[in-house]
Design a protein around this nucleic acid. Sequence first.
RNA 1: GGUGCCUUGGCCGAGCGGUCAGGCAGAGGUCUGCAAAACCUCGUAGGUUGGUUCGACUCCGACAGGCACCUCCA
Length: 484
Amino acid sequence: MQIKLYNSLTKTIEPFQPVETNTVKMYSCGPTVYNYAHIGNMRAFLFADILQRVLRVVGEYPVRWVMNITNIDDKTIRDSALNANTWKSEMGSQSDDPIDNLLKFTDFYTKSFIEDINTLGIKAEDFEAMPRATDYIEQMKGLITDLFHKGLAYVSEGSVYFNVNKWRQVDTYGKLFKIDFENFKPGTRVDTDQYEREQASDFALWKLKKPGEPFWSFDLDGQNCDGRPGWHIECSVMEKEILGLPFDIHTGGVDLKFPHHEDEIAQSKAGYGIEPTLFWCHNEFLEVEGEKMSKSLGNFFTVRDLMNKGLNSLDVRYLMLSSHYQSVLNFTFDGITASGKARQRVQDFIYDIFDNNAGSESADAVSLKNRVYEHLGNDLHTPQALAEVFSFINNNPAKTLNSTTRTELIEFFKDLNRVFSVWEINPRAEVEILIPQNIKDMAEERLKAKQEKNWAKSDELRDKLKADGWLVKDNKEGYTLEKI
RNA sequence: GGUGCCUUGGCCGAGCGGUCAGGCAGAGGUCUGCAAAACCUCGUAGGUUGGUUCGACUCCGACAGGCACCUCCA
């Protein structure tokens, strides 16, 4: 089916067509691995995951998905420094080699990142590669050297900068983000005195080493520039090395449009002569309880925090998919509860269609699938796709459906779950929970009291069971016990 | 200051120029000794203000409020 995607370059929804006829090459801006990933990060990665799944399932394309791991930047350097209090014993022991410390530190958080995305249903095997920035230093130096030779980069105090004004004479700078150069406000969050740029709009390609920091030797036409790469250069290099240029889709959070992606376009076009990608796709942010997530507001949650609170990871995934990726998502704990119930309703329907006692009604599973795929293919309208599923469920109770329809629906849900991945496409599992003997006895005693119409005693025992953590649900045959 | 986005019912969250979004919560009902669960049924919308139109939640303008980005935050 034809996929349509919103392209940040053109600011319109466009029909998607891969550069090469049969394969989609997709690059996602990945994490900076200096800490555990938080749920805001996760929205970006879940968006990318849904996109690649929709491309595979609805678009029927093979997908080559690459996500970078930024393991060299100010924060990873700071937090892996010798004797930093951010060091954990699980990372191993520190040495006097800053690169060794950096890698031990960032590998630890890379591993935890992969665990965390896996918790939320993103499968490691769906990635073709997760390249680490430090594995591409040589290629970065190569690109920087090219830019320098073309006169588009200059050295200032051992750091190398991209000359934006000069590039603007050649090509547009501001393809994703309209920039008002007259009113360009120099960055307020960075210690601007640290680096000497000619123009506030110029950006670092390479940064001079500071004492004690990890660095790589770099001789740029006789000028000693020992240091480490800037942030934007890694993506330009790794996507070109792994996927080749141009590739099809580049994803990331809206905050990355400028400067990160804008600079990436400039570097790649200037250095390689080709822009990185045809489609730029950006996800909106996530708020928590209506406010921007921040540590000072106390609403900052990592994936691990949520799991420790006992949240179901599938409910978290479902919540993230229940709103469109381009709208701000309000993450709330009430929302998680609602998501859990909504998700369970579909799950119960799926369980029910596996039951043997089929009815006689038929329903059009094919048109359901078409409608759902239509929504998914239309710029990933997951909320509408879900609405279709619910409408179907409401109009077609499982017990009324005949076996042919059930078979078709099972196939449909298998396919749908390749995208959503929040359900079990299986018969309801008869889970044998170990019920303590005293609870069994109490329940039997209650049943007896109930049969004797001794309601007072029966209710008393039911309350007692509830207090002990067991819920009694009566039915025609007797009762069932559920652990609360 | 610049750039862009958003404002829908108690909460979350879509599409659409006129006809049911959907979910959660809530109300009523079936079932039950009573519950619970399940199932059935049902409200309550479209920031304010002009305009376009036979008709606007939907298009255009203004205003108000909120959010994001503006050199290393997804």
